[in-house]
Design a protein around this nucleic acid. Sequence first.
DNA 1: GGACTGGGCTGTACCGGTACAGTACGCCCG
DNA 2: CGGGCGTACTGTACCGGTACAGCCCAGTCC
Lengths: 341, 341
Amino acid sequence: MAKVTLQSIADRVGVSRMTVSNAFSRPDQLSAELRERILAAADELGYVGPDPAARALARGRTGSVGLMLNDRISEAFEDPIAAEFFASVADRLADSGFALTLLTPRTSADFVPSRDVAMDGALVYICEPDSVDLAWLDRRGLPQVSIDQNKRGSVTSVNVDDRGGARAAAQHLVDLGHTSIGILTLESIAGPLSQSYPATQRMLGWRDALDPAGIGPRIVTAPYRPAATAYDVAVGLLEAPGRPTAVLCFSDAFAFGVIRAAEKLGLDVPGDLSVVGFDDSPVAEVTRPPLTTVRQDVARKGELAVAALLATMRGQEQPEDVRLPTELVVRASTAAPRAAT
Amino acid sequence: MAKVTLQSIADRVGVSRMTVSNAFSRPDQLSAELRERILAAADELGYVGPDPAARALARGRTGSVGLMLNDRISEAFEDPIAAEFFASVADRLADSGFALTLLTPRTSADFVPSRDVAMDGALVYICEPDSVDLAWLDRRGLPQVSIDQNKRGSVTSVNVDDRGGARAAAQHLVDLGHTSIGILTLESIAGPLSQSYPATQRMLGWRDALDPAGIGPRIVTAPYRPAATAYDVAVGLLEAPGRPTAVLCFSDAFAFGVIRAAEKLGLDVPGDLSVVGFDDSPVAEVTRPPLTTVRQDVARKGELAVAALLATMRGQEQPEDVRLPTELVVRASTAAPRAAT
DNA sequence: GGACTGGGCTGTACCGGTACAGTACGCCCG
DNA sequence: CGGGCGTACTGTACCGGTACAGCCCAGTCC
C-alpha cells in the first residue's frame, strides 16, 4: 500500500492538498463540515498526521530541544542531582510542546550530535567550554542556555550560588569552633584546568570562609564513581595523622562515604567528626545521622532554564542571567568539636 | 546575511548543487581537489553542514530514536534502575549514530509526542499497553522494541526474569525456615489492572515459592515516591500484631525503608527480621547490613534493547524476544528466624 | 445597484536537501 | 578507428509538508 500523504487524502475527498493541511493544522480556515469529512477520510486511509520531518522542514521548527552533556550520558545519569534536573527540564518542555533530545559529545567524525540533530534550541549542562560540540551549536546560531557553567559569550546562563552555599557551610563549621577541617571534593576529569564549574565555585566558597579564619584545609578528591572510592579516600583522610574534626564534601554522596568511613573507624558523627554535604539530595535525610548540607532547588533550576530557552527561541530580548540561591540546612551531622584536650 | 545552503556554495564555487552535496555526504563521488575547494568555500561562507531537517525529509531517516515513558519523565528518573537503563540506552545509541529523544504521554491534543516527533524507531519502557500514545506508534508503523512489558502484538520484547528472581528470593526465605513473611510491593498507579509488568511478575514469583510452602504472605504497598512512605508503611507492617520474620520488597529502596523501620522499632536485622530487596542497585551495598537482593543486569538490558531496535530498523528479520536472567545475591540482611519460642 | 467585506478554498512557490539516471570525456583494447 | 568502460560531474524529480497571495461568491452597506 502506498504511503498516505496529504495529497492522497485531497484526491479522495476532492479538495486541494492545502485544504487538507488546514484541516489538520489550522481548523479555523475551513468549514466544520468539510473538516469532518476530511478527517474521516484521513482516518479511513490510515493517515498518521502530518509527517514530522516534512513539517519541520517547511516550518523551520522541529519541536524538539537538545540537552548537551559533556560526559557520556551514563555518567550524568548516575548523579541524582543531575537526573533530577533533567527530569525537571523534560517535564517543563513537555508542557510547552517540545520533546527533549539528549546530545552526547561527538564520538566520530561522521556523526556529531550538536551538528546533525534537528532541534530548535539547546540546553548546555556542565560542558567543556571549548569543545567542538559547543562550537557547532554556536555556528548553527541555535538559541542556547547554559546551566552550571561559566558564562560563555552572550549565552544566557542559569546558575546556582554554589560559592555562597559552600561559604555558608564552611562558616558553619568555623562558627562551631572547628579549626582542623578536611575537604573531599570532586576529582578533575582531565587536568586541573577542566574542573567543573560547581566544583570550582564550591572550593572558592569554602576558602572564602576558611581563609579569614586562618584555616588551611586538608584537601582530598574522589571521582563520581564508583561510590566506593569516596569511602576509601575518606578512610585514608581519617586514618592519617592529624585527623580533621570536620569534613566539607562536594556532594551528599561523598558525605555518605565519609560517614561510613567514620563508622568503620569507630568515630562518632558528629561527636568526633562533623560532616557537611552538598545538594540536599534524598540521601541527606536517610543517612545516620541526617546530614547537614547545602540545599539547591534543582527543579527550579530546570524550570528557569527552560523558560529562558523558550524566551530566547521566541526571539524576545535576551533573558537575563539567573543565579539561584542556596541554603544551608543544618541537621545532625555537625556539632562543635569535642573540647580540645 | 542570507542563509547559507548548498546552492549558495555551489554558486560560489561554480559547480552544481549536487556536487556540493556529494562533497559532504559522499566524498568518493568527486575528486579530492574539488572537494577541498568546496569545503573551503563552505567554511568561508559559514556553512553549518547539511540541514538536519531537510536531510531527514529527503532521506526518510531522522537519526533519532524515541524513548517512550509512561509517567511524567521526572518519575522515571527518580528510579535509579530506570535511570541506569536510560543511560545504557543513550550510550549505545550514541555509538551507533543516533540521538535519543524522550517522549512523554500526550498532555494536550495539540502535541502528541508519539505522533509528532520525528524519529526512526521507538523504545517503549513500561507503558500502559492500551494508551493512545502506543497506538500512534503502531499506526505510524515505527519499528519498536518494548522493555519490561508484556508482549504487545508483534513487537519484540526485552525482559528480565523478574518472576524467577522473585521466586528465588522467596525460596531463599523459605529455605531459611521463615513461615511468617511480609511483602512490600509497588502500589498500582491507576486501579488493580494497571500494575506494572515487573510488579506483577515479581508477585507471581514470590507466590511460586510461598504457595507450595503453604505460606500466605501479608501484603502491603507503597508508591515509588516519596521514599518516606515506604518507611511509614514498613513501620505499620512491623508494629501490627503477628509481625512477620521476613519481608520481601519490590525494590532495594523499599528494602532500605524496611531496614530503617526495623531499626526505629529496635528490631535487629537479620536477627529479628530478614529483608530482601530487588534490583541490586547501588543502595544495596551501603545499607547496614548489606542487602540480600536480586540482581538484574540493567546495562545489558539497555544494550540488547538497542541492538534489537537497530536490527528491526534495518529491516532484518524480526529479532527474537529476549529474557535476561536474574540472580539472587545473598548478603547479610537475611538469616534464619530466631528459634520459635 | 455598485463597492466593500470577509469567509472558504485553491495554486504556486518554496523549505534544503538526496536519489538516480544521465552526460561528457579520456583511455584502453581489438 | 570505433566500441566499451570508468571517472567526474550535472539535471531533474522528488521527499511531504507550509506560507501566502489570490480567487470566488454571498452578504452588507449606502
